[in-house]
């Protein structure tokens, strides 16, 4: 036994350098992670505490104070989160039934419908907003028609923006939900019916809980980018009267060279979003847990 152990040890020692070579394959990735992912975050954090006066740098909390003592930022956060929340809810209300019905379509056609949902995403997002602007933006063909005939101004009341956000991000809601729905074992559903549940009960007790992780990742994938959008609010919504999106404010600050304030808001956003996705993950863990138990 001991000789076996010894030979095994020698074998391991001999082989030791080989996995090291494989490990070293990650070096370029480490470089990318260090210089282009970790360093930017550190710099953001650093800049957010620095006040630049001429060439002298001064340590300060002023950027955070300026950013959050004024109602300006809170208002803009409120506006961004309000629209993001509405858009996410509508995406969910349309996206869930869509994914559900899609999973019931003949398998022969599911692939192509999924492709039809994906395909518009390959047309540049800015190009699509450009198309929408001509329809719903200020002076757009539908917007003018509605103003003239119904005194309903989609550009000024924010409806155009909500439609635009839903239009752009709906696929991000549909796809994760659909992926979890088709993974559900039909036996679970049949078992529900055999035990006497009606279709509503089956959906409530079996289908929906099993697709919940898809719903959560859909919500994160829609909410985060909509809350920080720049292009859609710029063209589909009267932000000069309705309040700017947080992304637009960061854009304006950075373009004027106020890196400190821009960094402070960015850090705040990053922390907020980390908390949100951690919370989502927690729920998600319960979802996978219940899946595992069945």
């Amino acid at each position: 036994m001991s000789t076996f152990k010894k030979s095994l040890k020698r074998h391991v020692k001999l082989k030791f350098h080989k996995p090291d070579v494989v490990k070293s394959l990650a070096l370029p990735t480490l470089l990318v992670i260090l210089v282009l992912i970790v360093l930017p975050m550190l710099l953001l954090l650093g800049y957010s505490f620095i006040n630049k006066e001429g060439i002298a740098f001064k340590l300060t909390f002023n950027n955070y104070v300026v950013a959050f003592a004024t109602s300006y930022y809170w208002d803009s956060l409120f506006v961004s989160f309000k629209y993001a929340l509405i858009a996410t809810l509508i995406c969910l209300l349309i996206g869930y039934p869509f994914a559900y019905f899609l999973s019931k379509v003949h398998p022969r056609y599911q692939g192509i419908i999924l492709l039809l949902i994906n395909a518009p995403m390959w047309v540049n997002m800015t190009l699509r907003v450009f198309g929408l602007k001509a329809l719903l933006g200020n002076g757009g063909i539908i917007q003018q028609f509605l103003v003239e005939n119904f005194h309903f101004d989609v550009y000024n009341n924010g409806v155009a923006l909500v439609i635009g956000l839903v239009y752009i991000y709906l696929p991000f809601m549909i796809i994760p939900i659909y992926t979890t729905l088709i993974k559900i074992d039909p036996a679970h559903i049949e078992a529900g019916y055999d035990l006497g549940a009606n279709p509503f009960k089956v959906f409530q007790k079996i289908t929906f809980p099993l697709s919940f992780s898809g719903v959560l990742s859909g919500i994160t994938m829609v909410f985060l980018p909509t809350a920080t959008a720049i292009v859609a609010p710029h063209y589909l919504y009267n932000w000069s009267s309705g309040g700017q999106f947080i992304g637009q404010i960061i854009e304006a600050k950075v373009n004027k060279g106020y890196y400190g304030e821009g960094s402070a808001i960015s850090i705040f956003l990053a922390i907020l979003i980390t908390i949100m996705s951690l919370t989502a993950n927690k729920f998600d863990r319960y979802a996978t847990l219940s899946e595992g138990e069945e």
Partner: peptide
């Protein structure tokens, strides 16, 4: 968000 990555 992209904007945070961008400014970093």
């Amino acid at each position: 968000p992209d904007i945070v990555t961008a400014i970093g």
